[in-house]
């Protein structure tokens, strides 16, 4: 009886966990299926296979414009966040200085401050600074939201970094630049890559802050999708959304291959 009960909890656990994984992945799966469904309304399961919604999406100027805006924005915000965030993470990890905790809390705070508060605060500040509805507004906002991911990932990277390796290279009379190029950078590369991917994906998919900053101006892809969903939707939207899913999954796969996702989350 006891054994049977044991077995039953085991099986129950497997069923429960499978259901939860399905629950997590369900929206993405349904969107992908709807995008290849030839019928004119959003249905599931698909009743055939077609790529026509993708051609419609590629032909749609609003979607393609916002896709290119989102890509540029995410790339620039990622680069800027890396340039600012990496030295900050280095300082936080290696030095003990006055205001270190304050700096750390400050760069990580966008994770705790609700996005809606951040969005409205940035909006009012940028209007006051005369920068609202511009690319600069989105750019600044996206640096703020991607920064925590860069700082967190890079702090972890630096803390695992064994400085003896650099010292060994210097003892072997390697010039400083060679040490950076041949020792420091290769060790930090997986960290840098995961930081960039998380920053990129965060910026690329963000809606909660963008919505406030782009109001009236050019729309990023998530805002465009939001507007279409609000007005009622057609399968073209599913095709565009599938593109977003594919980009996200592909980037996660890159991190998984290079750094191992379980080490960085």
């Amino acid at each position: 009886m006891d054994r049977f009960l044991h077995r039953a909890t085991d099986v129950g656990g497997i069923v429960l966990r499978t259901a939860i994984y399905l629950f997590l992945a369900l929206p993405a799966i349904v969107v992908i299926c709807a995008s290849i469904n030839p019928v004119d309304f959003l249905g599931f399961p698909p009743q055939g296979f077609t790529l026509k919604w993708y051609w419609a999406a590629f032909d749609s100027k609003p979607f393609m414009d916002s896709l290119s805006l989102s890509t540029q924005l995410a790339l620039l915000a990622t680069v800027a966040s890396l340039i600012i965030g990496t030295p900050a993470a280095y300082a936080i990890e290696r030095y003990r200085f006055r205001g270190r905790n304050a700096l750390q809390a400050f760069v990580l705070s966008p994770m705790i401050v609700p996005a809606v508060v951040l969005g409205i605060g940035l909006l009012q500040f940028l209007v006051w600074a005369g920068l609202s509805q511009s690319f600069a507004a989105l750019f600044l906002g996206h640096i703020v939201i991607t920064m925590p991911y860069v700082v967190r990932t890079m702090t972890a990277s630096f803390s695992l970094f064994d400085r003896a390796l650099e010292q060994a290279a210097m003892n072997l009379r390697a010039p400083p630049l060679t040490v950076v190029r041949r020792v420091t950078l290769p060790i930090l590369l997986p960290g840098l890559l995961s930081a960039s991917v998380f920053a990129f994906v965060t910026s690329f998919g963000n809606i909660t802050v963008s919505l406030f900053l782009a109001h009236g101006g050019r729309a990023t892809l998530p805002i465009q999708i939001f507007t279409y969903v609000d007005y009622g939707s057609d399968p073209t939207l599913a095709a565009v959304s599938t593109l977003v899913i594919l980009v996200t999954v592909a980037l996660l796969a890159v991190v998984e291959r290079v750094a191992g996702l379980q080490k960085v989350v």
Binding site: P27, A28, V31, L42, G205, P222, S241, T248
Partner: peptide
Amino acid sequence: TLSLVVNVFGWLI
């Protein structure tokens, strides 16, 4: 990591 709107759109379907 997936955009929130895409996720919500999936739920709408």
